[in-house]
Design a protein around this nucleic acid. Structure first.
Length: 467
RNA sequence: CGGGGCGUGGCGCAGCCUGGUAGCGCACUCGCUUUGGGAGCGAGAGGUCGUCGGUUCAAAUCCGACCGCCCCGACCA
């Protein structure tokens, strides 16, 4: 896997500078933060757009709240503050003097939302209240890892309040499946295992945490998005209450859910190969690249025409006209960036009335008629998505084994995921796994669906090494 | 915080053991030839060798202190 996992060491010497150029981000001036370069940011914008559209379809609205949270605020939910305190960045000085009360840079915004949900909700008619925020958050991680665990990251966090526990649970599950599950599978081409977290892995302050776990190409797991049922914990702490139809005051049931720039890391590690990134068309800033092999009037004319037609077909298209650079250099550049489809046009092709269509996902190349190039490119994009998803699916199936005891689970986690009856593991087994560097990623029902909660009997645990 | 390792042109490194006036690859600049998978040749620019102190005629190299970074573990989207 390129960039994120193996870095440049695995490449021959002449490759190194190219890798450095294609590097998607770098750590920032403050330990563990990151600088996101244009190409990676363009990918993130596409991911954002897909998530945002689905969030709105689920009825939530976007808002924005402050970056700084008064320290006292965070203390209102005991378990929550306990879970986060080691990794907080705290502002003690501002305006040239020490602050009376320190302010925490948000590690997440449950407490801020809690305060406002409480003010904005009066009646059952105000419910459900579904809000979402696109923001940056800071968690001072002990060991940062580019895109997967940076000290500052960009994300979306949704916060909702509901009249009943059932409604809250249904909403958290809807977001989990229709936003996260859908974006991961249908856009990022990453198949996931959806389940609930064990008590030890659960979000601080939540009653149930739903997770999407993806398998990277090295068989390790990555938690890609989570959706939490918060019960009435935050409602109680922040007095988020409403008056029901009978005129009595009731506490709300709240949820929160988030996905971050970690998705970019997941994308790289789920699909990347030794030639660089392989982008699913849905998040490729350039879906079809037109390459002028040589500078020639007829080549320019055909390239211009194809570019127009591809754009008219609604595809993101760009033309590489740098004919003063060697062809190999240019092709490698775009391969490294993961552009899914290339149309290479040169006099030799045009003499045959064709252009070359190259696919990044399987490195195939074929000659297509100039007239059919647009349709062929569109078709190639469709099948490239399916191929990436199929490949990832096949790996997930192949590397998932059923086991019945802890020792076998640890062995299986060397190369992939293991499924073990939760009864054969339990909290004690979870600790034993932990000592071997393996964790319980989530719990599933025997049919593989998402359980109602972690306490339900007869569950299966999916265990793996994780990032 | 525990265990390893590393600081030398923009990037990646060699040189250090055995002190002697700093070198390689890539990138960069100029010229010519090239251009259908990371081009060749020639010329050139660029470095207080992490910092401070010590030993010495002489320190990238030996000694001491300090600073910073990376990897492995504990925390986690």
């Amino acid at each position: 896997m390129p960039v994120l996992v193996s870095q440049a060491d695995d490449f021959p010497g002449w490759y190194q500078d190219v890798i450095a150029k294609a590097e998607l981000a770098e750590s920032g001036p403050v330990r563990g933060t990151m600088v996101i370069r244009p190409w990676a940011y363009a990918i993130w914008e596409l991911v954002q757009a897909e998530i945002d559209r689905r969030i709105k379809a689920a009825g939530a609205e976007n808002v924005y709240f402050p970056l700084l949270i008064p320290e006292g605020h965070l203390r209102r939910e005991a378990e929550h503050i306990e879970g986060f305190s080691p990794e907080l960045a705290v502002v003690t000085h501002a305006g040239g003097r020490e602050l009376g009360e320190a302010a925490v840079i948000r590690p997440t915004s449950e407490t801020v939302f809690g305060e406002y949900l409480a003010r904005w909700i009066q009646s059952y008619r105000d419910l459900p209240l579904c809000l979402n925020q696109w923001a940056n958050v800071v968690r001072w991680e002990l060991r940062p890892r580019l895109f997967l665990r940076t000290s500052e990251f960009l994300w979306q966090e949704g916060h909702t309040a509901h009249a009943t526990e059932a409604d809250a649970a249904a909403y958290a599950r809807r977001i989990h499946a229709d936003v996260y599950g859908s974006v991961l599978r249908d856009v990022l081409a990453i198949p996931v295992i959806a389940g609930v977290k064990t008590e030890t892995e659960r979000f601080a302050g939540a009653t149930t945490t739903l997770t999407c776990e993806g398998m990277m190409r090295d068989g390790k797991a990555l938690q890609l998005a989570t959706s939490h049922e918060l019960g009435q914990n935050f409602a109680r702490a922040f007095e988020i209450a409403y008056t029901d139809e009978q005129g009595t005051s009731q506490l709300c049931w709240t949820t929160s859910w988030g996905s971050s720039t970690r998705l970019i890391g997941g994308l790289i590690m789920a699909h990347g190969d030794d030639a660089g990134l392989r982008l699913p068309p849905g998040v490729a800033p350039v879906q079809v690249l037109i390459v002028l092999v040589k500078d020639d009037p007829q080549v320019r004319e055909v390239a211009g025409r194809l570019e127009r037609e591809l754009a008219e077909a609604g595809l993101r298209v760009r033309t590489d006209r740098r004919t003063d650079l060697g062809l190999g250099r240019r092709l490698t550049d775009w391969e490294l960036k993961g552009v899914p489809v290339r149309l290479e046009i040169g006099p030799r092709d045009l003499a045959e009335g064709t252009v070359s269509l190259a696919r990044r996902d399987n490195k195939s190349r074929e000659q297509v008629k100039v007239d059919g190039a647009v349709a062929a490119a569109a078709e190639a994009l469709r099948s490239a998505h399916d191929a990436l998803l199929g490949e990832a699916n096949a790996q997930l199936r192949t590397r998932m084994v059923e086991v019945s005891d802890i020792a076998a689970a640890i062995e299986a986690a060397r190369t992939g995921f293991a499924r073990i009856p939760w009864a054969a593991c339990g909290p004690e087994g979870e600790q034993e796994l932990g000592r071997a560097g393996v964790s319980v990623r989530c719990l599933l029902t025997p049919e593989g669906s998402v359980p109602a909660d972690a306490a339900q009997g007869d569950l299966e645990a999916v265990v793996a090494r994780a990032y």
